[in-house]
Design a protein around this nucleic acid. Structure first.
Lengths: 206, 206
DNA sequence: ATAAAAGTTTGCAGCACCTGCAAGTTTCTT
DNA sequence: AAGAAACTTGCAGGTGCTGCAAACTTTTAT
Protein backbone atom coordinates (compact mmCIF):
# COMPACT_ATOMS: atom_id res chain seq x y z
CA UNK A 1 0.00 0.00 0.00
CA UNK A 2 1.08 3.58 -0.50
CA UNK A 3 3.20 2.54 -3.45
CA UNK A 4 3.44 6.12 -4.54
CA UNK A 5 7.17 5.95 -5.19
CA UNK A 6 7.86 9.44 -3.96
CA UNK A 7 11.15 10.28 -5.56
CA UNK A 8 12.35 12.21 -2.55
CA UNK A 9 15.71 11.36 -1.02
CA UNK A 10 18.22 8.85 -2.34
CA UNK A 11 18.02 5.28 -3.38
CA UNK A 12 18.79 4.05 0.10
CA UNK A 13 15.79 5.67 1.72
CA UNK A 14 13.60 4.56 -1.12
CA UNK A 15 14.63 0.97 -0.62
CA UNK A 16 14.03 1.22 3.08
CA UNK A 17 10.52 2.42 2.54
CA UNK A 18 9.93 -0.32 0.02
CA UNK A 19 11.13 -2.98 2.40
CA UNK A 20 9.04 -1.57 5.19
CA UNK A 21 5.92 -1.41 3.08
CA UNK A 22 6.53 -4.92 1.80
CA UNK A 23 6.78 -6.23 5.35
CA UNK A 24 3.64 -4.43 6.52
CA UNK A 25 1.74 -5.54 3.48
CA UNK A 26 2.85 -9.16 3.78
CA UNK A 27 2.12 -9.22 7.49
CA UNK A 28 -1.41 -7.87 7.07
CA UNK A 29 -2.20 -10.13 4.15
CA UNK A 30 -0.97 -13.30 5.80
CA UNK A 31 -2.59 -12.59 9.14
CA UNK A 32 -5.87 -11.68 7.47
CA UNK A 33 -5.76 -15.03 5.70
CA UNK A 34 -4.63 -17.33 8.48
CA UNK A 35 -4.92 -15.57 11.83
CA UNK A 36 -2.32 -14.01 14.07
CA UNK A 37 -0.62 -17.02 15.58
CA UNK A 38 -0.73 -19.12 12.46
CA UNK A 39 1.79 -16.78 10.90
CA UNK A 40 5.42 -16.64 11.94
CA UNK A 41 7.84 -13.78 11.50
CA UNK A 42 9.85 -16.11 9.33
CA UNK A 43 6.96 -16.45 6.91
CA UNK A 44 6.31 -12.74 6.79
CA UNK A 45 9.95 -12.07 6.07
CA UNK A 46 9.96 -14.78 3.46
CA UNK A 47 6.99 -13.18 1.71
CA UNK A 48 8.77 -9.82 1.73
CA UNK A 49 11.96 -11.48 0.55
CA UNK A 50 14.19 -10.46 3.42
CA UNK A 51 15.66 -12.36 6.33
CA UNK A 52 13.85 -12.71 9.60
CA UNK A 53 16.60 -10.74 11.25
CA UNK A 54 15.85 -7.82 8.98
CA UNK A 55 12.24 -7.89 10.06
CA UNK A 56 13.37 -7.05 13.57
CA UNK A 57 15.48 -4.22 12.29
CA UNK A 58 12.25 -2.56 11.22
CA UNK A 59 9.79 -3.65 13.90
CA UNK A 60 10.38 -4.56 17.48
CA UNK A 61 7.59 -7.11 17.45
CA UNK A 62 5.24 -8.90 15.11
CA UNK A 63 2.37 -6.81 16.41
CA UNK A 64 4.08 -3.57 15.58
CA UNK A 65 4.25 -4.46 11.91
CA UNK A 66 0.49 -4.94 11.96
CA UNK A 67 -0.74 -1.94 13.92
CA UNK A 68 1.91 0.56 12.89
CA UNK A 69 3.65 2.89 15.25
CA UNK A 70 2.06 6.16 14.10
CA UNK A 71 4.61 7.95 16.25
CA UNK A 72 4.75 10.89 13.92
CA UNK A 73 1.11 11.73 14.53
CA UNK A 74 1.78 13.26 17.92
CA UNK A 75 3.70 16.19 16.54
CA UNK A 76 1.17 17.03 13.89
CA UNK A 77 -1.73 16.89 16.32
CA UNK A 78 0.13 19.10 18.76
CA UNK A 79 1.12 21.51 16.03
CA UNK A 80 -2.47 22.01 14.94
CA UNK A 81 -3.60 22.26 18.53
CA UNK A 82 -1.17 25.10 19.08
CA UNK A 83 -2.75 27.12 16.27
CA UNK A 84 -6.25 26.91 17.68
CA UNK A 85 -7.07 30.05 19.71
CA UNK A 86 -7.55 29.40 23.43
CA UNK A 87 -11.13 30.64 23.42
CA UNK A 88 -12.19 27.59 21.43
CA UNK A 89 -13.60 24.93 23.75
CA UNK A 90 -11.30 21.99 24.35
CA UNK A 91 -13.45 19.43 22.60
CA UNK A 92 -13.76 21.50 19.47
CA UNK A 93 -10.04 22.24 19.48
CA UNK A 94 -9.38 18.54 19.65
CA UNK A 95 -11.69 17.77 16.81
CA UNK A 96 -9.83 20.24 14.65
CA UNK A 97 -6.47 18.87 15.71
CA UNK A 98 -7.44 15.36 14.70
CA UNK A 99 -8.78 16.32 11.29
CA UNK A 100 -5.53 16.08 9.30
CA UNK A 101 -4.94 12.60 10.66
CA UNK A 102 -8.45 11.55 9.73
CA UNK A 103 -8.01 12.79 6.21
CA UNK A 104 -4.80 10.87 5.85
CA UNK A 105 -6.46 7.73 7.09
CA UNK A 106 -9.23 8.14 4.59
CA UNK A 107 -6.70 8.67 1.83
CA UNK A 108 -5.03 5.41 2.86
CA UNK A 109 -8.35 3.75 3.45
CA UNK A 110 -7.42 0.45 1.81
CA UNK A 111 -4.51 -0.02 4.20
CA UNK A 112 -6.43 1.14 7.22
CA UNK A 113 -9.53 -0.91 6.57
CA UNK A 114 -7.43 -4.02 6.19
CA UNK A 115 -5.54 -3.17 9.35
CA UNK A 116 -8.74 -2.62 11.28
CA UNK A 117 -10.20 -5.84 9.95
CA UNK A 118 -7.14 -7.71 11.13
CA UNK A 119 -7.42 -6.08 14.53
CA UNK A 120 -11.09 -6.95 14.75
CA UNK A 121 -10.30 -10.57 13.94
CA UNK A 122 -7.45 -10.71 16.47
CA UNK A 123 -8.64 -8.90 19.57
CA UNK A 124 -5.29 -9.19 21.28
CA UNK A 125 -4.08 -6.54 18.85
CA UNK A 126 -6.65 -3.97 19.94
CA UNK A 127 -4.81 -2.96 23.10
CA UNK A 128 -1.67 -2.62 21.01
CA UNK A 129 -3.42 -0.26 18.66
CA UNK A 130 -4.56 1.84 21.58
CA UNK A 131 -1.10 1.73 23.09
CA UNK A 132 0.25 3.40 20.00
CA UNK A 133 -1.58 6.57 20.91
CA UNK A 134 -0.76 6.57 24.60
CA UNK A 135 2.24 8.80 24.05
CA UNK A 136 0.13 11.16 22.00
CA UNK A 137 -2.40 11.26 24.80
CA UNK A 138 0.27 12.08 27.34
CA UNK A 139 1.57 14.99 25.30
CA UNK A 140 -1.84 16.37 24.42
CA UNK A 141 -2.76 16.20 28.09
CA UNK A 142 0.17 18.46 28.88
CA UNK A 143 -0.73 20.82 26.07
CA UNK A 144 -4.30 21.00 27.25
CA UNK A 145 -3.24 21.67 30.81
CA UNK A 146 -1.16 24.59 29.60
CA UNK A 147 -4.00 25.78 27.38
CA UNK A 148 -6.65 25.76 30.07
CA UNK A 149 -4.29 26.80 32.82
CA UNK A 150 -5.53 24.38 35.42
CA UNK A 151 -3.34 22.88 38.10
CA UNK A 152 -1.47 19.64 37.58
CA UNK A 153 -3.59 17.71 40.07
CA UNK A 154 -6.75 18.66 38.25
CA UNK A 155 -8.24 15.79 36.31
CA UNK A 156 -9.71 17.84 33.49
CA UNK A 157 -6.99 17.66 30.82
CA UNK A 158 -6.47 13.93 31.23
CA UNK A 159 -10.21 13.38 31.18
CA UNK A 160 -10.69 15.31 27.97
CA UNK A 161 -7.89 13.51 26.16
CA UNK A 162 -9.05 10.10 27.35
CA UNK A 163 -12.66 10.75 26.42
CA UNK A 164 -11.61 12.23 23.11
CA UNK A 165 -9.55 9.17 22.35
CA UNK A 166 -12.49 6.96 23.22
CA UNK A 167 -14.83 8.86 20.92
CA UNK A 168 -12.22 8.73 18.19
CA UNK A 169 -11.84 4.98 18.56
CA UNK A 170 -15.56 4.35 18.45
CA UNK A 171 -15.83 6.37 15.26
CA UNK A 172 -13.00 4.41 13.68
CA UNK A 173 -14.55 1.11 14.60
CA UNK A 174 -17.86 2.17 13.10
CA UNK A 175 -16.02 3.28 10.01
CA UNK A 176 -14.38 -0.11 9.77
CA UNK A 177 -17.66 -1.89 10.36
CA UNK A 178 -19.23 0.07 7.52
CA UNK A 179 -16.42 -1.05 5.24
CA UNK A 180 -15.38 2.56 4.79
CA UNK A 181 -18.65 3.56 3.17
CA UNK A 182 -19.49 6.21 5.77
CA UNK A 183 -17.16 9.20 5.75
CA UNK A 184 -14.86 9.02 8.73
CA UNK A 185 -14.98 12.72 9.52
CA UNK A 186 -18.74 12.59 9.78
CA UNK A 187 -18.64 9.73 12.25
CA UNK A 188 -16.08 11.57 14.33
CA UNK A 189 -18.14 14.75 14.29
CA UNK A 190 -21.18 12.83 15.41
CA UNK A 191 -19.32 11.24 18.31
CA UNK A 192 -17.85 14.54 19.43
CA UNK A 193 -21.20 16.23 19.27
CA UNK A 194 -22.73 13.54 21.45
CA UNK A 195 -19.95 13.93 23.99
CA UNK A 196 -20.27 17.70 24.01
CA UNK A 197 -23.97 17.30 24.72
CA UNK A 198 -23.20 15.11 27.73
CA UNK A 199 -24.22 11.82 26.10
CA UNK A 200 -27.96 12.35 26.40
CA UNK A 201 -30.25 9.40 26.05
CA UNK A 202 -30.89 9.01 22.30
CA UNK A 203 -34.54 8.22 22.95
CA UNK A 204 -35.08 11.82 24.03
CA UNK A 205 -34.04 13.21 20.66
CA UNK A 206 -33.66 10.46 18.10
CA UNK B 1 -2.12 -9.77 49.55
CA UNK B 2 -5.62 -10.78 50.46
CA UNK B 3 -4.26 -13.34 52.89
CA UNK B 4 -7.60 -13.66 54.53
CA UNK B 5 -7.54 -17.43 54.63
CA UNK B 6 -11.21 -17.86 54.01
CA UNK B 7 -11.95 -21.31 55.28
CA UNK B 8 -14.44 -22.00 52.54
CA UNK B 9 -14.06 -25.10 50.42
CA UNK B 10 -11.48 -27.82 50.90
CA UNK B 11 -7.78 -27.86 51.33
CA UNK B 12 -7.21 -28.13 47.60
CA UNK B 13 -8.91 -24.87 46.75
CA UNK B 14 -7.21 -23.17 49.64
CA UNK B 15 -3.82 -24.25 48.38
CA UNK B 16 -4.66 -23.13 44.90
CA UNK B 17 -5.55 -19.70 46.13
CA UNK B 18 -2.40 -19.56 48.21
CA UNK B 19 -0.23 -20.51 45.26
CA UNK B 20 -1.94 -17.99 43.06
CA UNK B 21 -1.58 -15.22 45.59
CA UNK B 22 2.06 -16.13 46.18
CA UNK B 23 2.76 -15.92 42.46
CA UNK B 24 0.99 -12.58 42.05
CA UNK B 25 2.67 -11.19 45.09
CA UNK B 26 6.13 -12.36 44.09
CA UNK B 27 5.65 -11.10 40.55
CA UNK B 28 4.58 -7.63 41.65
CA UNK B 29 7.30 -7.34 44.26
CA UNK B 30 10.11 -8.43 41.97
CA UNK B 31 8.98 -6.32 39.03
CA UNK B 32 8.51 -3.28 41.26
CA UNK B 33 12.09 -3.75 42.45
CA UNK B 34 13.88 -4.57 39.22
CA UNK B 35 11.65 -3.74 36.26
CA UNK B 36 9.63 -5.96 33.98
CA UNK B 37 12.28 -7.49 31.78
CA UNK B 38 14.81 -7.92 34.53
CA UNK B 39 12.57 -10.55 36.06
CA UNK B 40 12.03 -13.98 34.54
CA UNK B 41 9.15 -16.35 35.07
CA UNK B 42 11.68 -18.74 36.52
CA UNK B 43 12.57 -16.25 39.25
CA UNK B 44 8.96 -15.49 40.06
CA UNK B 45 8.19 -19.19 40.35
CA UNK B 46 11.29 -19.69 42.45
CA UNK B 47 10.16 -16.96 44.84
CA UNK B 48 6.74 -18.58 45.11
CA UNK B 49 8.37 -21.98 45.52
CA UNK B 50 6.76 -23.71 42.57
CA UNK B 51 8.09 -24.83 39.21
CA UNK B 52 8.05 -22.56 36.22
CA UNK B 53 5.65 -24.94 34.53
CA UNK B 54 3.18 -24.43 37.35
CA UNK B 55 3.31 -20.72 36.81
CA UNK B 56 1.86 -21.25 33.35
CA UNK B 57 -0.86 -23.44 34.77
CA UNK B 58 -2.12 -20.34 36.57
CA UNK B 59 -1.31 -17.55 34.11
CA UNK B 60 -1.04 -17.65 30.37
CA UNK B 61 1.69 -15.04 30.41
CA UNK B 62 3.98 -13.13 32.72
CA UNK B 63 1.91 -10.02 32.18
CA UNK B 64 -1.27 -11.70 33.28
CA UNK B 65 0.17 -12.42 36.70
CA UNK B 66 0.85 -8.72 37.08
CA UNK B 67 -2.33 -7.14 35.80
CA UNK B 68 -4.80 -9.82 36.82
CA UNK B 69 -7.53 -11.12 34.61
CA UNK B 70 -10.52 -9.62 36.42
CA UNK B 71 -12.69 -11.74 34.18
CA UNK B 72 -15.30 -12.11 36.87
CA UNK B 73 -15.98 -8.40 36.92
CA UNK B 74 -18.00 -8.46 33.73
CA UNK B 75 -20.77 -10.52 35.23
CA UNK B 76 -21.08 -8.43 38.32
CA UNK B 77 -21.20 -5.19 36.39
CA UNK B 78 -23.81 -6.61 34.07
CA UNK B 79 -25.82 -7.98 36.95
CA UNK B 80 -26.00 -4.60 38.66
CA UNK B 81 -26.75 -2.90 35.37
CA UNK B 82 -29.72 -5.19 34.91
CA UNK B 83 -31.23 -4.05 38.23
CA UNK B 84 -31.11 -0.35 37.37
CA UNK B 85 -34.48 0.83 36.02
CA UNK B 86 -34.40 1.89 32.36
CA UNK B 87 -35.49 5.45 33.15
CA UNK B 88 -32.13 6.13 34.75
CA UNK B 89 -29.80 7.86 32.28
CA UNK B 90 -27.09 5.62 30.87
CA UNK B 91 -24.19 7.43 32.50
CA UNK B 92 -25.75 7.27 35.93
CA UNK B 93 -26.63 3.62 35.44
CA UNK B 94 -23.04 2.91 34.60
CA UNK B 95 -21.75 4.74 37.59
CA UNK B 96 -23.93 2.59 39.81
CA UNK B 97 -22.88 -0.57 38.03
CA UNK B 98 -19.22 0.15 38.63
CA UNK B 99 -19.58 0.97 42.30
CA UNK B 100 -19.18 -2.55 43.70
CA UNK B 101 -15.99 -3.00 41.75
CA UNK B 102 -14.65 0.30 43.02
CA UNK B 103 -15.35 -0.63 46.58
CA UNK B 104 -13.54 -3.90 46.17
CA UNK B 105 -10.56 -2.14 44.71
CA UNK B 106 -10.47 0.23 47.61
CA UNK B 107 -10.69 -2.66 50.03
CA UNK B 108 -7.70 -4.23 48.29
CA UNK B 109 -6.00 -0.91 47.90
CA UNK B 110 -2.52 -2.14 48.85
CA UNK B 111 -2.58 -4.68 46.05
CA UNK B 112 -4.09 -2.31 43.53
CA UNK B 113 -1.80 0.59 44.27
CA UNK B 114 1.22 -1.64 43.86
CA UNK B 115 -0.20 -3.03 40.66
CA UNK B 116 -0.88 0.42 39.27
CA UNK B 117 2.58 1.56 40.26
CA UNK B 118 4.08 -1.37 38.42
CA UNK B 119 2.00 -0.59 35.36
CA UNK B 120 3.02 3.06 35.50
CA UNK B 121 6.67 2.05 35.63
CA UNK B 122 6.29 -0.46 32.81
CA UNK B 123 4.12 1.12 30.15
CA UNK B 124 4.13 -2.01 28.03
CA UNK B 125 1.75 -3.46 30.61
CA UNK B 126 -0.85 -0.79 30.03
CA UNK B 127 -2.30 -2.44 26.94
CA UNK B 128 -2.66 -5.65 28.89
CA UNK B 129 -4.52 -3.88 31.64
CA UNK B 130 -6.88 -2.36 29.11
CA UNK B 131 -7.27 -5.72 27.41
CA UNK B 132 -8.81 -7.10 30.56
CA UNK B 133 -11.75 -4.75 30.24
CA UNK B 134 -12.26 -5.02 26.50
CA UNK B 135 -14.53 -8.00 26.94
CA UNK B 136 -16.46 -6.20 29.64
CA UNK B 137 -16.91 -3.27 27.29
CA UNK B 138 -18.22 -5.48 24.55
CA UNK B 139 -20.81 -7.05 26.81
CA UNK B 140 -21.92 -3.80 28.41
CA UNK B 141 -22.29 -2.32 24.95
CA UNK B 142 -24.75 -5.06 24.10
CA UNK B 143 -26.60 -4.58 27.34
CA UNK B 144 -26.84 -0.86 26.78
CA UNK B 145 -28.10 -1.33 23.26
CA UNK B 146 -30.88 -3.53 24.60
CA UNK B 147 -31.59 -1.05 27.39
CA UNK B 148 -31.88 1.98 25.18
CA UNK B 149 -33.45 0.12 22.29
CA UNK B 150 -31.39 1.75 19.56
CA UNK B 151 -30.41 -0.01 16.36
CA UNK B 152 -27.21 -2.00 16.06
CA UNK B 153 -25.62 0.47 13.66
CA UNK B 154 -26.14 3.32 16.06
CA UNK B 155 -22.95 4.42 17.74
CA UNK B 156 -24.49 5.46 21.04
CA UNK B 157 -24.01 2.35 23.19
CA UNK B 158 -20.41 1.84 22.11
CA UNK B 159 -19.71 5.50 22.66
CA UNK B 160 -21.10 5.49 26.18
CA UNK B 161 -19.15 2.40 27.21
CA UNK B 162 -15.94 3.68 25.68
CA UNK B 163 -16.28 7.09 27.26
CA UNK B 164 -17.27 5.56 30.56
CA UNK B 165 -14.21 3.34 30.47
CA UNK B 166 -12.05 6.35 29.73
CA UNK B 167 -13.46 8.32 32.66
CA UNK B 168 -13.01 5.30 34.88
CA UNK B 169 -9.38 4.90 33.85
CA UNK B 170 -8.59 8.55 34.43
CA UNK B 171 -10.05 8.35 37.91
CA UNK B 172 -7.99 5.28 38.69
CA UNK B 173 -4.81 6.90 37.49
CA UNK B 174 -5.48 9.95 39.64
CA UNK B 175 -6.18 7.65 42.56
CA UNK B 176 -2.88 5.93 41.99
CA UNK B 177 -1.06 9.22 41.63
CA UNK B 178 -2.48 10.37 44.96
CA UNK B 179 -1.17 7.22 46.58
CA UNK B 180 -4.69 6.20 47.44
CA UNK B 181 -5.28 9.19 49.66
CA UNK B 182 -8.24 10.48 47.69
CA UNK B 183 -11.30 8.24 47.84
CA UNK B 184 -11.71 6.43 44.56
CA UNK B 185 -15.47 6.73 44.40
CA UNK B 186 -15.22 10.48 44.71
CA UNK B 187 -12.79 10.72 41.82
CA UNK B 188 -15.05 8.57 39.70
CA UNK B 189 -18.09 10.64 40.58
CA UNK B 190 -16.24 13.80 39.64
CA UNK B 191 -15.20 12.40 36.28
CA UNK B 192 -18.70 11.16 35.49
CA UNK B 193 -20.20 14.50 36.44
CA UNK B 194 -17.82 16.31 34.12
CA UNK B 195 -18.72 13.97 31.27
CA UNK B 196 -22.43 14.36 31.91
CA UNK B 197 -21.99 18.11 31.74
CA UNK B 198 -20.34 17.81 28.33
CA UNK B 199 -16.79 18.49 29.54
CA UNK B 200 -17.21 22.25 29.91
CA UNK B 201 -14.15 24.41 30.13
CA UNK B 202 -13.15 24.44 33.82
CA UNK B 203 -12.32 28.13 33.61
CA UNK B 204 -16.01 28.91 33.23
CA UNK B 205 -16.82 27.46 36.63
CA UNK B 206 -13.62 26.96 38.61
C1' DA C 1 37.30 7.15 -10.46
C1' DT C 2 38.64 5.50 -6.20
C1' DA C 3 38.77 5.05 -1.52
C1' DA C 4 36.95 5.79 2.82
C1' DA C 5 32.74 6.30 5.59
C1' DA C 6 28.29 5.32 6.79
C1' DG C 7 24.29 2.54 6.68
C1' DT C 8 21.84 -2.00 5.77
C1' DT C 9 21.29 -6.99 5.55
C1' DT C 10 22.23 -11.37 7.12
C1' DG C 11 23.53 -15.57 9.74
C1' DC C 12 24.38 -17.33 14.09
C1' DA C 13 24.29 -18.03 18.87
C1' DG C 14 21.43 -17.69 22.67
C1' DC C 15 17.95 -16.53 26.20
C1' DA C 16 13.26 -16.12 27.53
C1' DC C 17 8.34 -17.07 26.65
C1' DC C 18 4.94 -20.44 26.23
C1' DT C 19 2.66 -25.17 25.07
C1' DG C 20 1.69 -30.28 24.87
C1' DC C 21 2.45 -34.49 26.88
C1' DA C 22 3.29 -38.05 30.16
C1' DA C 23 4.58 -39.33 34.67
C1' DG C 24 4.45 -38.46 39.59
C1' DT C 25 2.14 -36.59 43.70
C1' DT C 26 -1.66 -34.78 46.49
C1' DT C 27 -6.45 -34.38 47.62
C1' DC C 28 -11.22 -35.95 47.35
C1' DT C 29 -14.79 -39.57 47.22
C1' DT C 30 -16.81 -43.77 48.60
C1' DA D 1 -8.08 -48.10 52.11
C1' DA D 2 -8.52 -47.85 47.20
C1' DG D 3 -9.69 -45.65 43.21
C1' DA D 4 -10.88 -41.25 40.86
C1' DA D 5 -9.95 -36.61 40.10
C1' DA D 6 -7.07 -32.71 40.31
C1' DC D 7 -2.57 -30.50 40.68
C1' DT D 8 2.52 -30.31 39.95
C1' DT D 9 6.53 -31.20 37.56
C1' DG D 10 10.10 -32.19 34.00
C1' DC D 11 11.11 -32.47 29.31
C1' DA D 12 11.03 -31.62 24.52
C1' DG D 13 10.30 -28.23 21.24
C1' DG D 14 8.69 -24.17 18.63
C1' DT D 15 8.55 -19.10 18.42
C1' DG D 16 9.77 -14.32 19.64
C1' DC D 17 13.32 -11.33 20.06
C1' DT D 18 18.37 -9.46 20.84
C1' DG D 19 23.49 -8.80 20.39
C1' DC D 20 27.30 -9.38 17.65
C1' DA D 21 30.27 -9.55 13.79
C1' DA D 22 30.85 -10.26 8.96
C1' DA D 23 29.27 -9.20 4.33
C1' DC D 24 27.27 -6.01 1.28
C1' DT D 25 25.36 -1.49 -0.63
C1' DT D 26 24.94 3.28 -0.96
C1' DT D 27 26.85 7.80 -0.08
C1' DT D 28 30.51 11.10 0.47
C1' DA D 29 35.09 12.95 -0.07
C1' DT D 30 39.19 13.21 -2.43
Amino acid sequence: MTIVEDATAGRRDRKKRQTRDALVSAALRLVAERGLDQVTVEEISEAADVSARTFFNYFSSKDEALVGDQAGDSERVLAVLATVPPEVPALEAFRLALTPMLEEMQADSALWLLRLKVVAQNPSLLPRLVAGSVETERMTTEALAARTGVGPDHGYPALVTAVTGAAFRVAIIRWSASGGSLPLTELVDEAFAAVAAGLPDPRSAA
